[in-house]
Structure formats: structure tokens, C-alpha cells
Write a protein that binds this DNA or RNA. Structure first.
Lengths: 74, 74
DNA sequence: TGGCCATGTTAAGTTTTCTATACATGGAGC
DNA sequence: GCTCCATGTATAGAAAACTTAACATGGCCA
């Protein structure tokens, strides 16, 4: 299945910071399934770029606040 | 085939701004094929998040300088 | 105890991303 | 003219992302 991705994320923290938003609620807002949210949140695979942009938009933060690519900081 | 993606990018401009870097050269730096670079540059499909991070890193700019998601600005 | 809710797992299948190969075109230089 | 080189197109297939559906667990509360 999905390669254990190098990209990490802060989705869980952002969900709780946004009114205890549930995974189901986030999934619905993104127009994807709950399983997709769970898989991304757990880092089982990294989302597509479009999905990443959408997630960042839901939380109203820049992309880099949601996803971290190790080694990006010089 | 690939869905006509909503994400646009500035790869071509960035390539030329970085010493007339060719598509083949960029592809090699990314560890992908030339076809992948062409397809992404033409917006035939949006790259994976990991690929996007790698591209941004090659040019030494933040992700949002390479890719634009329409409607992200409020 | 029993039901509901949020979370998590698994498996099978579809769509999108990416690879590999082959071939076409126009420009620059010999 | 011919040959490189950068760019582009097309096709088939592999790999990764995503869907759908089914089921399992632990917490809460009436």
C-alpha cells in the first residue's frame, strides 16, 4: 500500500484547536471519506497537492503549518 | 487521463531564473523522469505533496512560490 | 446492560500520478 | 545539407492515492 511517507502533519492538533472537529466532520468538509482523513493523519501516505491545499484552507493556515517535509529548513 | 488540475505553477519561470535549467536537469535533480516534469509544468496533473516539496527545495523557495491554488487568498 | 459515537483496521477496487520507451519538431551550429 | 539538443506527444503499464463497505474497540451516558 501507501509508502510510509516522509511528510508529517499537524492535522490532529489543528482539528482539536478548531472546536474539537471530528475526523468525519473534516472529511465531509474536504469532500473525501473518513478513511482518507485517518490515513493522512496517521502518515500512511501523503495527500495530493490539491488535497493538501484544501486541508490548509479548512484550518485557515498556510500549507507549511499543516505539513512538514523533513530537511526543508536549511 | 489526468484531470485538468486546478493547481497552477511557476516552474518554467523558476527554471529560467535558475541558470536556464533544462527540464531534463530538473528531472534528474528530483529523481523523476523528464515526462513527469513536463506534465506537471503543463498542469496536466498536480504532483504529490512530496514531489511539490522537493521541487520547492530545488529552487530554494517556499511551496507557495511554486504552486498556486486558486481561491486560497481570502 | 445496552446503545451511540469517535476512532481505527482490513480488504478489494477505481482513479490519478509517475515510469519507460519511442518518436516528432524547431533552433543552433558545423 | 546534417546533427545535436531542448521540448513536446503518445502509449502502455506500475505505483501511489483515494473510495466503499464491513467490522472492532473503548468511552460515555441513560
Amino acid at each position: 500500500m501507501g509508502k510510509p511517507t516522509k511528510v508529517t502533519n499537524s492535522i490532529r492538533a489543528l482539528r482539536f484547536a478548531h472546536g474539537e472537529m471530528t475526523q468525519a466532520e473534516l472529511a465531509e468538509r474536504l469532500g473525501v471519506t473518513r478513511q482518507t482523513v485517518i490515513a493522512i493523519e496517521h502518515g500512511r501516505y501523503s495527500p495530493s497537492l490539491e488535497m493538501a491545499f484544501q486541508i490548509a484552507r479548512v484550518f485557515g493556515v498556510p500549507l507549511d503549518d499543516v505539513f512538514q517535509y523533513p530537511g526543508t529548513e536549511e
